[in-house]
Amino acid sequence: MDLLNALPGAVAQGFIWGIMAIGVYITYKILDLADLTVDGSMVTGMAVCAMLMVNGWNVWPAMLIALLAGMLCGLLTGIFHTFMGIPAILSGILTQLILWSVNLKIMGKANQALPARSYDVLIRQLDKYHALVILALFCVVIIALLYWFFGTKFGAAVRATGCNEKMARAQGINTSFNKVFGLALSNGIVALAGALLAQYSGKADINDGRGAIVIGLAAVIIGDALISRLPQNFVVRLTGVILGGVIYYIVYQTVIFIGLDTDLLKMLSALVVAIFLAIPHFKKTYFSKRTRKEDADHA
């Protein structure tokens, strides 16, 4: 019974992390970059939104500023990576560490309460069904906007940058600019998810972003598995990512309900992601013999 009661909450959290995972999808899948900035930019989104609302701002401009702050985080990682030539994964780690300090300075302390009874927030834990509707709308709007964007000439050039950089440059595409743009877009979405999470959970905490990248990757991977048998298009894939986040949180709640030591949750998440990331490698290593034979038959 408790588990069923916890379900709407799990789904709401899943939606929020699903939105965050769409940001991860943009870097990890579309740009083919592993961007660790998100652990920091998630909290930046939470902190900016919380501090602005505590200081009397309306929720909408607060969320917009949070999104822009997230884009700045991505911009910084992009500059490290392209202009300064630092490998993407290191660039993200550097920004993440910078953001640890920045986020502390934004809040002035390690956490900031944003109680729903005192502030006019968009979503709150106390009204889960209302939150679910709002979050579902956010997902729809974000997916629609991204579907439009990646169908434009500029968007197609961003996709080409991640797919084949050499080809992209030969077709006159400024790949460095597109990478910086993609990182900014991704982290903007992550920070927006952070702003939503701060409202939903009624607080922003410096530790809330820890392992965000792993949750995001988990959602992307689960999403991939979910839609593997469906006709592939961009809307289906992004919807898969959102559902991936939802499933992650349902499993998470179930595991807590069963009574597993919550200290172990991060370790388990990481191990599950590691196994899924290893699958392509395992396939190549252990099924390669058969593939080669098939190739020979075709030749």
Partner: peptide, 24 residues
């Protein structure tokens, strides 16, 4: 670009040297 469609690849080439805006 292997993961993109034939028509998408051709459109990338079609816009070589042009400004790539937010039109389809």
């Amino acid at each position: 670009a292997a993961d993109m469609w034939i028509e998408e690849n051709m459109s990338l080439a079609m816009n070589r040297g042009k400004r790539r805006g937010l039109g389809w």
